[in-house]
Amino acid sequence: MSPLVKVENLSKFFESSGEIFQVFDQVNFTLEAQSSTALIGESGSGKTTLIHVLAGLEPPNSGMVIIDGIKIWNSKESMRAIFRLEKMAIIFQQYNLIPSLNVLSNITLQARLINALDEAFQYELISLLGLEKLLMKYPEEISGGQQQRVAIARAILAKPKILLADEPTGNLDNENTRKVLEAFEILSARYKTTILVATHSKSVAKKLDTKLQIESGKATKTVIR
């Protein structure tokens, strides 16, 4: 398999109160197409920042990110947005649901925006993630775990080329975590999506193909299965 994501010499630091905090330094790795990778590391190790950099949301200080042959940080901001819309889906820790839209509209939003809504898959996902009874509710009316499942459904339904997920199961019980992982497997197998999941959960990490460990600003990749 050829790499879908190629990260070269990626560095990111923050400046706070005159001090420089190095998040990662000269990181290099690749993510193969259709692969699933667990991004692991301690809290504050830079997992979320790396996902933001890969998503084209937060610029690196140096280095290069190439996704599907496109150097995303060399593109204009609007091009990055279009790339994100058409090729990527992101699951955030804070879910980022649209408060003014109900659950159903939130789930179908990205897929509809790129005219790629697969209604059969939509019902399958809603059923799999147990969201049938919540479709007409608004985000503020459902629990954190339910919101997280809605955010996951939205990302998966867009059938992206690459899925970036930041602690997608952090608020879920074992049963719901299992269902989410099943949905990831469907996405990967059926739609050949490359998946990168930042997680603290060993059980989640075990279910994925490779492991990308961030430690002391460096990344180490190991094959799990």
């Binding site: 998503a55 949301l57 901001e77 609007s78 947005a81 279009i82 790339f83 994100r84 819309l85 058409e86 990527m88 992101i90 955030f92 980022n96 649901l97 649209i98 939003l109 990205q110 925006l113």
Partner: peptide, 9 residues
């Protein structure tokens, strides 16, 4: 949320 989905600014 719309911006991160890919709606341009």
């Amino acid at each position: 949320p719309l911006w991160v989905l890919g709606i341009t600014r």
